[in-house]
Design a protein around this nucleic acid. Structure first.
Length: 507
RNA sequence: GGCGCUAUCGUCUAGGGGUUAGGACGGAAGAUUCUCAAUCUUCAAACCCGGGUUCGAUUCCCGGUAGCGCUACCA
């Protein structure tokens, strides 16, 4: 172990789709560890699975990582002195080292066919034996093997697993030991000449001088093979840190079935990157004392510690993410949030991207009204429906409104209110102020004797279609100003709403 | 099946041989408000089971159970 060497870590995703939250956490922990120890972060693309890998996914991955605020010092896009950083560009390297292992008798040629191996495995399972490779070709004389290879016989390269238990250290799990009895001599180079994952990962990590391998614990059982490989190659074994799996609410491995799982999903929902980073850091890590929850990414760089990472699997809790997101939405500058929020309204055609006079100031008021009630930005248009939508008929027939509409005073309130608004000069022009509105409401109160919810609920039904909702002081100016803006979806003024409601009511 | 990993409130976790087992999310109640949201206050809620070690285990050890992973010429 080269613990004194400068820290070098890597994040090594397969470009098979968008960045998943589990991988994002792995990337984050690698990055935090690198940054806090002034180490080097390497991005390596594991694209040896040609069938599933696509170049465009690599760009997506990079976008997703950058969105989270992560960066790297070496990688396919930025270069570096340990490249190439795409496995598909490293094939000659893998072959070269495989040949070396062969010549040193650390590896041997295996002539067993896939069908034979398959049979052997089936027999072993049937007889309840360990389905590991028999080691049949270990016995083949190297010279004879070479001859058979030269004559064109198909063969794979297998690593010789040592005759002793394999031990390694894991920062999150402590010492780990595997009996050599249970680990097969692994194939490192297929008969097709293509190297196998467990082999290339070792070659790459070693050649890239990776000192700490931080990855998902689904690789824990593969690690003994990899350790054996390091030893066969005569290279130092790195430190390992295997991170627990992230589970869904049903305690199964988090997958698309559980809804949003990719970084892009969260971005599209209007989750802020700092909220996601904070949340991901808290999944499996806690600061000493364990009472602090809010961490900026810079604070995490300071406070994070691999030693404090828990080994047990964690269930992804959307609600807690949303809580953090609400926190960061409040923390953010209104300018930034409004800029992000605008896109959600544009996407639905509620607002256009054209410059509309007075839009910015008006939109700020809309945001001030609805922002406190959302978990994520995508909910904004729905919350702003009270502004953009008005359906008097629906308001009259909604079951939620039945009780209020049936109250003894409601009819009088509605009638007085309607008359006053329709008569009001400023309302007719869509220039009713919050003060004037309040004055009218107070007059209705005095004339009908209705107060509290008897007074406010019917009026709110007229204006918004629902008895509960935002305060009038804030809402009225938004409606009035909105009615003067040139918007794709016209915002009805108070007067227009009252008029429509009166018409629907037929009184 | 074999091997490995894991096990504290519903969830994320702190803690650790003797504690009123701490915090956060969520939940409930209350305050505030015309209502909703926000905010504030309060409350409920956990050491998987069985053995051992020990004066004393939730903590250490062993076993069980459960969950997850690996067991490929997949990554």
């Amino acid at each position: 172990m080269n613990s004194s060497a400068p820290v070098r870590v890597r994040f090594a995703p397969s470009p098979t789709g968008h960045l998943h939250v589990g991988n994002a956490r792995t990337a984050l922990f690698n990055w935090l560890f690198a940054r806090q120890s002034s180490g080097t972060m390497v991005l390596r693309i594991e694209d040896t699975d040609v069938d599933r890998s696509e170049a465009r996914f690599e760009d997506q991955l990079i976008d997703d990582l950058k969105w989270l605020g992560l960066d790297w010092d070496e990688g396919p896009d930025v270069g570096g002195s340990f490249g190439p950083y795409r496995q598909s560009d490293r094939l000659p390297i893998y072959r070269e080292h495989a040949e070396r292992l062969l010549s040193e008798h650390k590896a041997y040629l295996c002539f067993c066919t896939e069908a034979e191996l398959q049979q052997e495995r089936e027999r072993a399972t049937a007889e309840r034996r360990q389905p590991i490779y028999s080691g049949k070709c270990r016995a083949v004389d190297p010279a004879e093997a070479q001859q058979r290879r030269d004559s064109g016989e198909a063969c794979a390269f297998r690593l010789r697993i040592p005759e002793h238990p394999i031990r390694f250290h894991d920062i999150v799990h402590g010492p780990v030991e595997f009996s050599n009895e249970v680990v097969s001599d692994p194939i490192i180079l297929r008969s097709s000449g293509m190297p196998v994952y467990n082999y290339v990962v070792v070659i790459d990590d070693a050649l890239m001088k990776i000192t700490h391998v931080i990855r998902g614990d689904d690789h824990l059982s593969n690690t003994p093979k990899q350790v054996a490989l390091y030893e066969a190659l005569g290279w130092p074994v790195p430190e390992f840190a295997h991170l627990s799996t992230i589970l869904g609410a049903d305690r199964e491995r988090l997958s698309k079935r559980h809804g949003a799982t990719s970084i892009a999903n969260f971005r599209d929902m209007g989750v802020l990157p700092e909220a996601l980073v904070n949340y991901l850091a808290l999944l499996g890590w806690a600061p000493p004392g364990g009472t602090r929850e809010i961490f900026s990414i810079q604070e995490l760089v300071k406070e994070f510690s691999l030693e404090r990472v828990t080994p047990s699997p964690a269930v992804f809790d959307m609600e807690k993410l949303y809580w953090l997101n609400r926190h960061y939405i409040k923390q953010s500058s209104t300018q930034r949030i409004e800029h992000l929020a605008l896109n959600f309204f544009r996407a639905l055609g509620l607002l256009s991207s054209a410059h509309t006079q007075g839009l910015e100031a008006w939109f700020s008021k809309v945001m001030a009204l609805v922002l406190p009630s959302v978990d994520r930005l995508e909910q904004l248009p729905e919350k702003a429906a009270v502004i953009f939508n008005h359906d008097a008929k629906a308001a009259l027939t909604a079951s939620d409104n039945a009780e209020v509409l049936g109250l003894p005073n409601t009819d009088a309130v509605l009638t007085r209110f309607t008359v006053k608004i329709l008569e009001d000069e400023s309302a007719r022009e869509g220039k009713l102020t919050a003060e004037c509105f309040k004055k009218i409401v107070n007059e209705v109160k005095a004339e009908t004797g209705a107060k509290g919810k008897e007074l406010f609920h019917p009026i709110r039904i007229v204006i918004t279609g629902s008895h509960s909702g935002p305060e009038f002081d804030k809402l009225i100016p938004i409606l009035e100003e909105g009615s003067h803006l040139a918007l794709p979806r016209h915002v009805l003024s108070v007067h227009q709403r009252v008029e429509a409601f009166a018409k629907a009511r037929g009184k």
